[in-house]
Design a binder for these strands. Structure first.
Lengths: 152, 152
DNA sequence: CAATACAGTACTTATTTAGTCCTGTTTATA
DNA sequence: TATAAACAGGACTAAATAAGTACTGTATTG
């Protein structure tokens, strides 16, 4: 199945929860409580998002995380890149870490690259704000993880 | 990493090899030889492609497989669907097998669906012929598997 | 200086994917 | 009509990946 990782899914849940409180910092334990996701996993995801500059961290007591930019300026492609690495469907694609050894001979490389760019464009075109606002966030049930837990 | 499965990658190699001989049937052992991929795996992939109606099987002695349609009429989305199941990035997407339990409450469902449609459109837009022809197939090295083997 | 909170890394476990094998069915041909 | 070639389908094993956990270190506040 061609699908996103559970980490990315969790990441969006956490970011959505943070977007609801744009003016205050959210700590990892706090977000774990609000989303009902396991605390160590939440901490791990937040670290990755901070490293990818999707969120900014404030260290020390009274510290926490907040969105690096308004939700409308954070793209799905960025979130995926921070949590799962850059979007690269195959090894034969520009920007992939390990390029295949006979790249120059492979007649499929160009085609895959085209597909990769199209997918990346699709992901670049949707922001975190789009993802959240599409159906409104008024329902109090929002924040519980199971609703957006991925199949595996 | 957001990537295709190795099965899909192998599938494209096999289909490319079949497309080179549009007028004759190719048997599973024959394709395994030509592509240097392990024979049982090749057989498994061909069965899946036949089930997905990307290729047609002729049973019995002197049987084999051939493309169900001209390469230009076979899309990448079809190939992925046959080998990895339908493209459904998350469970919250129309057409997904197991839909999440609180689907009606999930504020992200609509957004994911939008992304999913965009990705699917990108994959629908590229045919097997596009994939093969982009760089020409003149190089004799084509047919050896390592060139398009995916990273993992 | 003590408590809080993030940073980084190493490790274990679980899940998924890939690969193999076996049995059954179909069909051409000797 | 018997035999061999070739696909169909499912069950099983092994390897690779992802997820989850734990621990040690660093920064900051009060």
């Amino acid at each position: 199945m061609f699908k996103l990782s559970r980490m990315t899914d969790y990441g969006v849940v956490l970011l959505s929860s943070m977007a609801q409180r744009p003016d205050c910092l959210s700590t990892a334990p706090d977000l774990a409580d609000r989303t009902m996701l396991p605390a160590p996993t939440v901490a791990k995801i937040l670290k990755a998002l901070a490293k990818g500059q999707v969120i900014v961290a404030t260290r020390g007591a009274q510290g926490g995380y907040s969105l690096a930019r308004p939700a409308a300026d954070i793209t799905v492609a960025e979130i995926i890149a921070a949590l799962d690495g850059p979007v690269a469907l195959t090894a034969c694609v520009d920007g992939s870490d390990d390029n295949c050894s006979v790249e120059r001979l492979c007649p499929l490389a160009g085609g895959w690259n085209r597909i990769n760019l199209a997918v990346k464009a699709a992901l670049d075109d949707v922001s975190l704000a789009d993802l959240i606002s599409e159906c409104g966030m008024s329902d109090p049930a929002f924040g519980a993880a199971p609703g957006i837990t991925l199949q595996q």
